[in-house]
Write a protein that binds this DNA or RNA. Structure first.
Lengths: 221, 221
DNA sequence: CCAAAAGTGTTAGTGATACACCCATGT
DNA sequence: ACATGGGTGTATCACTAACACTTTTGG
C-alpha cells in the first residue's frame, strides 16, 4: 500500500558545541549570512540529508564547523513547535558536543559569514528559539558532568587533577575543595597516574589519564 | 530568499505508554492493520501534522489510543537512522507516558486492528526498531522513578504507602524494605496524610496524597 | 481467635563535608 | 630564599541498609 504524500516538516540538526578556554565555558555560534535572522548569531546546524542518519548529520555539521572528529556527541532534545521558524514548519533535533581544549579551525560556509566562541555567561542575541536550546544544553551539561565522566571530554589525553578540577569549577561556576575533590575522583578508580610530569614553572604536577577508551562515558551515580 | 524544496523525511511521533496492572508493568501496543509489518505489534504513533506542535501530536495520539488526557508525558529520544522504515526515510520522535491504574477504553483506528496491554517482561515481536525504543523507554522509566517523583503518575489521587512501594517493586523488579522505604518517602516531605482510610479486609491503611499538583514532577536527587 | 496486611526504631557502616599545612620546583 | 601551585589526613555529620515484632481490622 502506498501512502499519499502529505506535506512534511523540514528537519534540521543543530549542535551546541562547548569547549573550555581560559576560565570560561564557551559555546560555538555562527553568524547567519541569510534571512531570516540575517547577521544574527545562531547555533550551528543544517538540514538533514535523506541518505544520512541523524547522528551522522550531526557529526558532519560538527566537522564542517570545527574540522574536528571523534568528539563526545549526544542527542539533546527535539524542538518541534509549529511557529519556531518563520519560514515554515521546521523540526530541529538538537545535539550537544564537547571539544577538548585544542586549536580548532573555525570555518565559514555558504550560509554563515563567521563562527566564533562565546562565553556562555554572556551570549549574544540568538536567532529562532536558540537561546532556549542553549539553556537546555547547559542544564544537561551540568547534569552530565555531575553524574557521568564526560568531563574528560574537555581534556587532552594527559592531564593534571588541577586541570580536571578547573573544568568542574568553570562549568558549575563555583569552587571545590581540593582534597575532597581529589579523594572523590581517585576513589572512582577511573584514572591512571602516569610517570610523566607536567613541565613548566613551579612544582611539576602528576599527569593522569582516563583508564577507559575515549568516548566511553560512565555513569557514576 | 526562498529555499528550493529538497526532499524531506517523514516525521512521526510514537508513544510508549506504560501502566501498572496487577503485579506487572504493562506497555500498550497496537496491531498494525497495514503494510509494512501488517499484523505485527507496534508502539502506537502516527505522522506529525503540519499545524501541530510535536508535543501536541503526542498528546493527540495518546488520547486517540486510550481516551485519556492530562497524564505524564515526556519526550524520550528521536530515532533517525536511514533504514529504520522500509517505506523510506522516517524520523520518529518517541515519547513516553505513564497512566494511572484506571480503566482505559482502548480504541482501534484505521491503521490499527487491535490495541492491548502487554507485560514488558514478555513483549511480542515488534515492528520496525520498536523493541529498541521500548528498551530505551524502560531504561528511562527506571531512571526517572529513582530520581524524580513520577511514580505518583501511576497512582490515583489517594493511595497507600504500600501501593506506592509496590510501584517501585514492580518497575525495578525487586523487593524493598518496608521501613526504609517509608522512612525515605516520608522524609522527602512530598506526601500528605489524609484522614480517610482504605476500606476493605484487614487493618485499614492510611491514605496519602501528593502535595504538589498533578504533573508537577520533582527531581529528588 | 486467627489471618492478613499495617505500622514502627535502632544500629552499623558508608560517603560527604569542613578544614590548614608542608612540599617541590624555577627564578 | 621566595613565590607559586602541588599534594596530603582527620573528625564530624548525614544518609543508607539491615533487621523483627506489635497492632488493627474482618471474618
Amino acid at each position: 500500500m502506498k501512502k499519499r504524500d502529505y506535506p512534511k516538516p523540514s528537519v534540521t540538526v543543530d549542535i551546541v558545541i562547548f569547549t573550555i578556554k581560559g576560565d570560561d565555558l564557551k559555546v560555538l555560534l555562527v553568524k547567519r549570512a541569510i534571512k531570516p535572522f540575517k547577521d544574527i548569531w545562531a547555533i550551528p546546524g543544517g538540514f538533514v540529508r535523506m541518505e544520512e542518519d541523524l547522528e551522522k548529520a550531526a557529526k558532519r555539521e560538527l566537522e564542517e564547523e570545527t574540522g574536528v572528529k571523534n568528539v563526545y556527541l549526544e542527542q539533546l532534545y527535539t524542538f518541534g513547535e509549529v511557529k519556531r521558524d518563520p519560514r515554515g514548519r521546521v523540526i530541529t533535533v538538537a545535539y550537544f558536543a564537547l571539544l577538548p581544549q585544542i586549536k580548532t579551525r573555525l570555518r565559514a560556509t555558504a550560509d554563515v559569514s563567521e563562527a566564533r566562541w562565546f562565553s556562555v555567561k554572556k551570549p549574544p542575541e540568538l536567532a529562532f528559539d536558540h537561546l532556549k536550546i542553549l539553556k537546555y544544553a547547559l542544564k544537561r551539561l551540568r547534569w552530565k558532568l555531575e553524574y557521568t565522566t564526560i568531563a574528560f571530554s574537555f581534556l587532552p589525553e594527559k592531564f593534571t587533577l588541577t586541570q580536571l578540577q578547573k573544568i568542574y569549577e568553570i562549568v558549575f561556576n563555583k569552587k571545590f575543595d581540593k582534597r575532597n575533590f581529589r579523594k572523590k575522583i581517585l576513589s572512582l578508580d577511573l584514572l591512571e597516574k602516569i610517570k610523566e610530569k607536567k613541565k613548566g614553572a613551579y612544582r611539576p604536577a602528576s599527569l593522569y589519564k582516563f583508564k577507559k577508551k575515549i568516548g566511553e562515558i560512565i555513569e557514576v551515580l
